[in-house]
Each structure stands twice: as C-alpha cells, then as structure tokens.
Amino acid sequence: MASELRGYRIYDDGAVEELGPVPTARLGELLTQAQAAIPRRAYGIGLYRDRRDFLEAHPRGQDEFAFRSDRLHRDSLLSRLSGRDAGLAFEVHGVEQAVAVFVCYAGLPRDAFERKAEDFPKPRR
C-alpha cells in the first residue's frame, strides 16, 4: 500500500503551507529543514492521506521529533480542534527514526500503523 502522500508545513504560529505530493526520498531533507528553523520561525512537517487522517512531526531540539496523529470524525476545523478519534502522540530520536515513522505511515493502512506506533523506539532521557 506504499503511496506518495501530500505534505504541509505547520508553523507554531498556526499558519499552514501546502507542499503537495511528498516522495519518501524527500522526508529527511524536510525534517532537517524543520530542525534548522527552530531559532527562527519554528514549524513541523505533516503528511496526510485525506482531510481526516494525518501525521505531524515537530522537532524538539536537534535530536528528537514529537509526533501526533489523528483520525477525525468530521471534515470541519472544529472537529480537528475537539472531535478527535484514534489520536496518537509519541516521540522518536533523530531524523532517521522520524523518516522511518513517516514511511511506516505511508506504507500501512491506518489501523496497522496505529498498532505499529506502539512499538516505535522511545527517546532516551
């Protein structure tokens, strides 16, 4: 089921910038750029299957990425803010693991991705 998903940048100030289709070969570059933007206008990278199923990665310093993913009930902005279903939140260490999470998301059906996410390596504290 591997597919090219659509991507976006989501800025900490709430702005969203569409990136269009994002090949998996470009994910490392996008995540590295997001890390470099932290001192200026910080943002995360998101991929989505459709308007209700997305995965976002936000850099936390130079070594970790915080992921969040939701499968939404409805297509409205209000549902994105309050009506969440099947949400995930986790962190991984480094760009390589962050790319691996996005590749997993692109290559698996949503339910299988949610099960797999429970096994992702956790960052060391």
Rank of each mutant, 00 (worst) to 15 (best):
1 M>H: 15
1 M>V: 13
2 A>I: 14
3 S>L: 06
3 S>N: 01
4 E>Y: 01
5 L>E: 06
6 R>V: 04
6 R>C: 04
6 R>W: 06
7 G>I: 00
7 G>E: 02
8 Y>C: 10
8 Y>H: 04
9 R>W: 04
11 Y>S: 01
13 D>T: 08
13 D>G: 02
14 G>I: 02
15 A>R: 15
17 E>V: 13
18 E>V: 02
19 L>C: 11
19 L>Y: 12
22 V>T: 08
23 P>F: 10
24 T>G: 12
25 A>Y: 05
26 R>M: 12
27 L>M: 15
27 L>N: 14
27 L>W: 11
28 G>Q: 08
28 G>E: 15
29 E>H: 13
30 L>A: 11
30 L>Y: 11
31 L>C: 12
33 Q>A: 14
34 A>I: 04
34 A>N: 03
35 Q>P: 01
35 Q>A: 11
36 A>K: 12
37 A>Q: 04
37 A>K: 02
37 A>C: 08
38 I>L: 15
38 I>M: 06
40 R>M: 07
41 R>K: 09
41 R>G: 00
42 A>Y: 00
43 Y>F: 12
45 I>A: 02
45 I>S: 01
45 I>C: 03
46 G>N: 04
46 G>E: 03
48 Y>F: 13
48 Y>N: 12
49 R>E: 05
49 R>A: 00
49 R>G: 03
50 D>Y: 08
50 D>V: 02
51 R>S: 08
52 R>P: 01
52 R>E: 06
53 D>C: 13
56 E>Q: 09
56 E>Y: 05
58 H>S: 09
59 P>A: 10
59 P>Q: 03
60 R>S: 05
60 R>I: 12
61 G>H: 04
61 G>A: 02
61 G>N: 05
62 Q>H: 08
63 D>S: 09
64 E>H: 08
66 A>H: 10
66 A>C: 01
69 S>L: 02
70 D>Q: 05
71 R>T: 01
71 R>H: 14
73 H>T: 12
75 D>Q: 08
77 L>N: 06
77 L>E: 10
79 S>G: 14
79 S>I: 06
80 R>P: 00
81 L>A: 14
81 L>T: 06
81 L>I: 09
82 S>A: 14
82 S>Q: 09
83 G>K: 05
87 G>L: 04
88 L>Y: 03
88 L>G: 03
88 L>W: 02
88 L>V: 04
89 A>Y: 08
89 A>L: 03
89 A>P: 00
91 E>G: 03
95 V>S: 02
96 E>G: 13
96 E>C: 00
96 E>F: 00
96 E>H: 10
97 Q>M: 14
97 Q>Y: 01
97 Q>F: 01
98 A>D: 11
98 A>Q: 11
100 A>C: 07
100 A>Q: 13
100 A>L: 04
100 A>H: 08
101 V>Y: 01
102 F>I: 15
102 F>V: 14
102 F>T: 11
103 V>T: 15
103 V>R: 14
104 C>E: 15
104 C>L: 12
105 Y>S: 03
105 Y>G: 05
106 A>N: 10
108 L>H: 13
109 P>V: 10
111 D>R: 13
114 E>T: 13
115 R>I: 07
116 K>M: 11
116 K>D: 13
117 A>D: 04
117 A>P: 09
118 E>N: 07
118 E>L: 11
119 D>I: 00
119 D>G: 14
119 D>E: 15
121 P>G: 04
122 K>M: 10
123 P>V: 01
125 R>P: 05
